Computed example of a mutant assay.
Amino acid sequence: MKRHLYLITFLFSLAISAQDLDTFFSKTNTFLGTHVKNGKVDYKTIHKDQSDLDEILKIAEKISVKASDGNSYQAFWINAYNVSVIKGIIDNYPTKSPLDNTGFFDKTTYNLGGKSITLNDVEHKLLRAKFKDARFHFVLVCGAIGCPPLINEAYMPNTLDEQLETQTKKAINGSFLRVNEKKKKVEASEIMKWYEDDFTMDGMTKIDFINKYRTEQIPDNYKLSYFSYNWTLNKQ
């Protein structure tokens, strides 16, 4: 009898958790669709009325999702990171850059997925360390112009791989690189310098990684360097 009751309780908790996760994705999708345009965030409007943002983060507190459920786990934490960055900016609004706020990435904590956690912990411990996927760098948006653009929709479990591919291709074929054919050189975002190991896994060179996603291939003899990261706030 006790085992039967335990099973019912367990299945009920799973159903509630799945419902919370669906609600989180739905409300995040609506929120981003309302406040993000061309990769820029309307912080001014959000600051005037933070109720939707606070509701999303309140739901995120109770979410329970395991790494074994890879797509749901990754989609949750990518969205949780991006929404928490917006919350961090709003809590310090007005601000010109996330770096103007001490501890923005490594000290300020958020209650997400049953944890009190920093943005750096989400990125480095919960995502990069577990899945070894360089494409995370093109969907985790740090609140600055130098980051990849924030899309105006949520990352969803059933479309996650397609979204990761799309955003990586957009970056590699867009502002993430500056190619000078005359000088046979290519400049990349400093992201490729800071996270070199992520872009050189399995014996791959950085040029190999670039060419995996780039329409116009970069010759192997091009010299790779890096342009300075733009930490100016990605505001509308």
Rank of each mutant, 00 (worst) to 15 (best):
K182P: 06
K125C: 11
N158M: 11
S228A: 15
L224C: 04
I78Y: 06
S84Q: 07
D52T: 09
T30I: 13
V186F: 10
Y81P: 01
V83G: 06
S17T: 07
L164E: 01
Y93M: 08
G70S: 15
L5R: 10
K2M: 11
S189R: 00
R214G: 01
K235W: 00
T109M: 03
S97A: 12
E123I: 09
Y155T: 04
F131Y: 13
Q19M: 12
I56M: 10
L99N: 03
R3C: 05
M201P: 02
D52N: 07
E196L: 07
E190S: 14
E61H: 01
K182M: 14
K193P: 05
V139T: 02
L127V: 08
N29P: 01
F138Y: 12
S51C: 13
A67D: 11
L177Y: 12
V186E: 01
N173S: 05
L150Q: 04
T102D: 15
T30R: 14
T95G: 11
G203E: 13
N234W: 04
K107E: 15
S13E: 09
I218D: 03
V179R: 09
G39Q: 04
I90S: 02
N71V: 09
K66C: 14
K48I: 07
P98Y: 08
T166G: 07
E187H: 12
I59G: 11
P149G: 12
I8C: 10
K212P: 01
T168Q: 05
D52Y: 11
D22C: 06
V36Y: 07
I86F: 09
R178D: 14
I59E: 10
G88Y: 12
V85Y: 04
K27L: 13
R135I: 07
T118M: 12
I46L: 12
P94Q: 15
A60T: 11
D69Y: 04
W77T: 09
Q163W: 13
L164A: 06
W194T: 12
G113C: 06
S17K: 02
K185Q: 15
F136V: 04
W194D: 14
N234E: 03
Y6D: 15
K206I: 10
Y222N: 09
S84H: 00
L11G: 09
E187C: 11
F136H: 08
K48S: 12
T28K: 06
I191F: 02
H35L: 14
Y93T: 02
I89V: 00
L112N: 02
V65C: 01
F76P: 02
K37V: 12
I59Y: 05
M192G: 03
T166K: 05
L177P: 10
Y73M: 02
N82L: 03
S228G: 13
L177C: 14
N234F: 05
T95P: 01
L177H: 02
I78H: 05
R128V: 08
N173R: 07
T9P: 04
V186M: 01
T9I: 12
I63R: 02
Y110C: 06
Y229C: 00
I46M: 06
T168V: 03
L112Y: 05
